[in-house]
Design a protein around this nucleic acid. Structure first.
Length: 765
RNA sequence: GGGCGAGUGGCGGAAUUGGCAGACGCGCAGGAUUCAGGUUCCUGUGUCCUUGACGGGACGUGGGGGUUCAACUCCCCCCUCGCCCACCA
């Protein structure tokens, strides 16, 4: 009968022509706005992944609901089109990333449109477009001026397949998160953003955020704040001190050696020297040990074999003394806490107090003191690749490193033929002499441009600031707009971004806030993470060939069915299982909805049908939507539609019209096209998406007769109908009228275990 | 190794946060429609026992213990799976 895809296309065209999802951002009431942000995709050649469709359908349904609740919903979309992923695909196919991106962007726009999400396309962002990355470069310059961007030589992570350095966040274990290759270490001069300066605030700020606990935990763990102490050892033969960090300075008196990482700059000179214990003055051998890592802490540790497993093993192997200084445990090593022993005046002090006292003592003597360390590294943003925004810095032989003047932005990425990564540590742009050779902005003399481009995550670290200000070509964002529309009211995305994109965006926003450029320091006060979608009970993967392509389904069953099934197959925040069989149930449901709601108006007398079912459904669907429980919201819709279908004939025309209108409005956020179609057929005014959410009559929800569960000795023995709000005596009397209850009471007088009015009466004998 | 989740019919998943376990859907079975298959529509569907039937009973939320009138839900121990971190000093 109906050609759903065709019907859907018609409505999509109309929405677009009517600019239904575009807002006048200068008229929006800041108190009534809802910035509904979802993670924008990078357009790959494989096309939109169903995981993205899953995110967008959930977030869009929520946005439509909020809109019907009276909020001005701002729901933009864009493309994270720079980056290694796109570039790697370009390399594989030999198509230049510029041309490839233009092609994939069109495909993505089409796919996204066909899902029926209410995006404001007038504010689209494309991160690889000079009109966007001009401002990415500008943001970099603001950070640079503030001392938050710096170039330094440091040991860095190198991907031998992508032929570029990577940030620590872009590792999965010891592998590149993009290509899965095991990474190596190099020492290179690179650009960093000083994220560690914000480590403390990044941790503390989490407390006030409405984020899932997992997300907070992941960021906390990633930042890895540790309180402890630094301990400085004099090493007379070296002529300088060695400083170690420890979280267990209470075990200081048990130190029997000092160990350096082989990567420590002084490793070779210090090995075999003697360090002086800062508290006892005892001589300690300085050793180099493989288990001490260069990139962790100071690269120097205090060897306390009695209270650390690795130190213990090392001491046994090398015949170093083992001195117990903490009471407790069965034997050594003992890594727990306890009262100190053999620790001079700290003997007898419990570990936590001892840590404080010893750290203070060290500080007073100038040999260290309390210290905080983070696992977080500064963000390495240089990439020796082509497909990214050039870092806007020039090098002058006289003036040194110079930022490109803001008026000269963007530093345009030239279209070069050979964009392959070189593997030499120098980016492909270095081969373009026209690009490289420039003049110094300071002295006007000859200078050379930086040829590394910046990490894609820099592009996405500020994109949400750009959406409301896309039409302003002369600034990154418009202050008044920003104040009106930001921060984001809800951000929907995936867990994989918590320790990457979400962290970077928080850092950049905090920094911009400190520079007085944005009026808030947290970009995403409310974050929601969608779960993982399986296909037929298995992880989707190319090798299994079970990747669900949203396009195929849109083509076959329509976007509304796909949307509803995605949201029905599991709890959106937990994930679900996509099966073709399950999809079929939604097709049937849509058929039923169509049949039920396009029937001729009934002519019953009215007053025969209990309309509380409708009110209960309105209440339940609304409550579930607030909690993003789309699956149970849809199940309530199914019950409502079945009820409406069955009872319709007994309703008056007026009753039916109320039921049908309300039902279509409840359906509209989930199935926007069908909702619009049915709304029109009901003779209502376009558009259903601008209608208010149906009112719940709370009075109507009250029941006058309830079902009371009667338990005897904890087992359900009867369910009896009872006047709502009945008191205990009435309830007991009613319970005793049940033969089954009497039988189980066995002639004995029951005691009342509990009586919860309108719910349960528990009798005990 | 550390931390955090999760485990419910044949399957996906519900359960007002301690109060009727299995909503809703898939699948399956029976029936109607159909020449037939498919579609569509009704009805039934946790397991076992009992009853001619209405009904009634026992068991049941990974396993074992506990708290409670009452436990999928809280506490302790164990098993399995998933995620995050991991020679982090």
């Amino acid at each position: 009968m109906d050609d759903s895809p065709e019907m859907e296309r018609t409505w999509q065209a109309r929405w677009q022509a009517d600019r239904l999802y575009e807002l006048d951002l200068d008229r929006v009431d800041p108190n009534g706005k809802f910035y509904n942000l979802m993670e924008f995709p990078y357009p790959s050649a494989e096309g939109l992944h169903v995981g993205h469709a899953y995110t967008y359908c959930g977030a869009d349904t929520f946005g439509r609901y909020r809109r019907m609740r009276g909020r001005a919903v701002f729901q933009p979309m864009g493309f994270d089109s720079f980056g290694i992923h796109t570039e790697n695909f370009a390399l594989k196919t030999g198509v230049h990333p510029m041309r490839l991106t233009a092609k994939t962007l069109d495909a993505y726009r089409g796919q996204l449109r066909r899902l029926g999400c209410g995006f404001d396309w007038s504010r689209e962002i494309v991160t690889s477009d000079p009109s966007y990355y001009r401002w990415t470069q500008w943001v970099f310059l603001q950070l640079y001026r503030a001392g938050l961007a710096y170039r330094a030589e440091a040991p860095v992570v190198w991907c031998p397949s992508c032929l570029t350095v990577l940030a620590y966040e872009q590792l999965e274990g010891d592998r590149c998160e993009r290509c899965g290759t095991v990474v190596t270490e190099r020492v290179m001069k690179q650009w960093f953003l000083r994220m560690t300066a914000y480590a403390n605030r990044l941790v503390d700020g989490l407390d006030a955020l409405d984020w899932p606990d997992v997300a907070k935990r992941m960021q906390r763990e990633w930042i890895g704040r540790r309180w402890g102490a630094e301990v400085s050892f004099d090493v007379p033969s070296l002529g300088q001190q060695l400083t170690a960090f420890t979280t267990r300075v209470d075990t200081l008196y048990g130190a029997t050696f000092v160990a350096l990482s082989p990567a420590h700059p002084l490793a070779r000179r210090a090995e075999g020297a003697t360090a002086v214990h800062p508290a006892t003055g005892a001589p300690l051998p300085v050793v180099v040990a493989d288990y001490v890592m260069g990139g962790v802490g100071t690269g120097v540790i205090i060897g306390v074999p009695a209270h650390d497993e690795r130190d213990h093993a090392f001491a046994l192997e090398h015949g170093l003394p083992i001195v117990r200084v903490v009471e407790g445990g069965d034997g050594l090593p003992y890594t727990g806490e306890g009262r100190l022993m053999d620790s001079d005046e700290f003997t007898g002090t419990p570990s936590p107090d001892a840590r404080r006292a010893i750290a203070e003592r060290l500080a007073a003597r100038g040999s260290g003191g309390p210290a905080v360390r983070y696992r977080l590294h500064d963000w390495l943003i240089s990439r020796q690749r082509y497909w990214g925004p050039p870092i806007p810095i020039v090098y002058c032989s006289d003036c040194g490193e110079q930022p490109v003047p803001e008026d000269d932005l963007p530093v345009v990425l030239p279209e070069i033929e050979d964009f392959r990564p070189t593997g030499t540590g120098v980016a492909p742009l270095a081969a373009d002499r026209v690009f490289v050779q420039t003049t110094c902005p300071s002295c006007g003399g000859p200078a050379e441009r930086e040829t590394d481009v910046s990490d894609t995550f820099v592009d996405s670290a500020w994109y949400f600031l750009r959406y409301p200000s896309t039409e302003f070509a002369d600034r990154a964002w418009h202050d008044e707009r920003t104040e009106r529309i930001l921060p984001v009211d809800q951000y929907a995305g995936g867990r994989e971004h918590v320790a990457r994109h979400h962290l970077y965006a928080r850092f950049v926003t905090m920094a911009l806030h400190d520079l007085g450029l944005v009026p808030f320091s947290e970009p995403f006060p409310r974050l929601r993470l969608h779960g993982f979608l399986l296909a037929e009970g298995r992880k989707m993967s190319k090798s299994r060939g079970n990747i669900v392509n949203p396009d195929d389904y849109v083509e076959r069953v329509g976007a509304d069915v796909l949307r509803m099934y995605l949201l029905f197959c599991g709890d959106w925040e937990q994930g679900g299982d996509f099966t073709d069989a399950g999809l079929h149930g939604i097709e049937r449901f849509v058929g039923r909805v169509r049949r039920a709601l396009t029937r001729p108006s009934p002519a019953g007398p009215g007053g025969e049908v209990d309309l509380r079912t409708l009110h209960r459904a309105v209440d339940a669907v609304g409550r579930d939507l607030e909690r993003l429980k789309f699956n149970t919201a849809i199940s309530h819709l199914m019950r409502l539609v079945r009820w409406a279908d069955e009872e319709a004939e007994r309703m008056s025309a007026f009753e039916w019209s109320n039921v049908a209108n309300a039902t279509v409005r409840l359906l509209a956020p989930f199935a926007p096209h069908l909702g619009e179609e049915l709304w029109e057929r009901l003779g209502q005014e376009y558009s259903v998406h601008e209608q208010p959410w149906p009112q719940v009559d709370l009075e109507a929800l009250l029941e006058e007769v309830i079902t009371l569960v009667v338990q005897v000795n904890g087992k359900v023995r009867a369910r009896i109908r009872l006047r709502a709000g009945a008191n205990e005596d009435e309830a007991v009397k009613a319970a005793l009228s049940s033969e089954n209850v009497r039988r189980h009471l066995n002639q004995k007088d029951p005691r009342i275990g509990a009586y919860i009015p309108n719910r349960v009466l528990s009798l005990v004998v």
